Every structure is written in structure tokens, then in C-alpha cells.
Simulated assay, not measured.
Amino acid sequence: MSTLVVHESHWGNTRQVAEAIAEGLLAGAAGPVTVVDVGAAPSPLPADVDLLVVGGPTHAFSMSRATTRQDAHRQGAEPGHEAVGIREWLGSLPVGEVRPAVATFDTRVTQVRRLPGSAARAAAKLAGRHHVGEVVDTASFYVDDSPGPLADGELDRARSWGLALASRTR
């Protein structure tokens, strides 16, 4: 099984979660795992991808948009992420013969833990509408504030989720 983990990260928190998920996938003997920033993500998907894991920050109760990415940059986020987010990348994937299992995740601020809206759920819906593959799971991971840090225990929880994904999709 080959896994591609695509992340959109403005402050580095979502990237850390993506890397921890990849560690869990590897521990679960999920085969090769590639972690890539959405700006460098392949389109179309490589033919050998059996599991696609996609994650990004929740902005305004959903996946980021060009305007919310620009706002994040103005607030001090890492430069270079304004043009393409997971919304645009998922929407650009051509319908093809490669239809991997899909898992989505997001990072969100702990204070809005119970508010509606989630980049992970929105990405799952978009993946389904674009026939990317069957969505097998979604998860949210929490940061103390937009710039971070991740809340205590979230990287361990991300590793555990990756391990669970590996066992579920083998």
C-alpha cells in the first residue's frame, strides 16, 4: 500500500500533524508514505496511491480560501501558501482510474472546538463530489491559537489516528 499525505500549513501546526500521521501510518506497516505540501502535490494522483490523506487548517468554518490565506499571511503566517490550498488542489484533481481511500483532517483552535464547520468535513465532501475516492475517516486536531502551539497530546493523537488508518485500509 502506498500513501500520499497532502497538507496545507500556514503556521507549521498542520504540517506537524501530517508528519505525525505519517509516522503512525509507517508504524502500522502501511507501506511507503510520502508527505507533501499542497503547493507541490501531484495532479493527477500517481497510479500507486492506495490511501490519500488530506489536511488543512479550518478557516472561517471550512477549508481556506484565497482571502483567508492572505489574511493568515498578513497576520504573520509562513509566506508562499497564499495561492493554492487543499480546496483548489482537490477541485483540480481529474477523475481517473486512481480512486484511493481518502482520509481528511484539519487543525482548528481549541476555543472553537464545539462550533460548526470543519475543513476536514468540507474536504471530505469535496473529495466525494469530485470522485477522488471513498472517504474512510475524518479527524480534527487542536491548536491553542492560530499560530500555535498544538494542544497537549495532539501529535500523539495524530500518530494514533495514522496507525488506525493503516490498520483500516490494509
Score class of each variant (00 low, 15 high):
81 H>F: 14
62 S>H: 07
153 G>H: 08
33 V>E: 11
116 P>I: 13
137 D>S: 15
128 G>I: 00
115 L>A: 14
76 G>H: 11
56 G>H: 08
120 A>K: 07
47 A>Q: 15
119 A>G: 15
90 L>K: 06
106 D>R: 09
122 A>Q: 02
110 T>Y: 05
112 V>A: 12
48 D>T: 11
138 T>E: 05
147 P>V: 00
129 R>E: 14
151 A>L: 08
63 M>N: 02
23 E>C: 05
47 A>D: 15
27 A>P: 10
85 G>C: 07
139 A>I: 01
128 G>L: 03
143 V>N: 06
83 A>H: 10
115 L>D: 13
70 Q>T: 02
23 E>N: 09
43 S>T: 14
44 P>V: 02
149 P>S: 03
133 G>L: 11
61 F>P: 00
68 T>P: 05
153 G>L: 07
73 H>S: 08
100 P>W: 13
138 T>D: 04
90 L>S: 03
76 G>K: 07
145 D>N: 10
65 R>P: 01
122 A>R: 03
25 L>Q: 04
114 R>G: 07
50 D>E: 15
28 G>L: 06
30 A>T: 02
115 L>Y: 13
109 V>T: 03
115 L>K: 08
117 G>H: 12
137 D>Y: 09
101 A>H: 12
67 T>H: 13
42 P>E: 14
30 A>N: 14
64 S>V: 00
26 L>R: 14
60 A>Q: 09
40 A>P: 11
88 E>C: 08
62 S>M: 02
64 S>A: 10
52 L>T: 03
137 D>V: 01
59 H>V: 00
105 F>D: 00
76 G>T: 01
28 G>W: 08
108 R>V: 00
114 R>Q: 10
125 K>V: 04
62 S>P: 00
80 G>D: 04
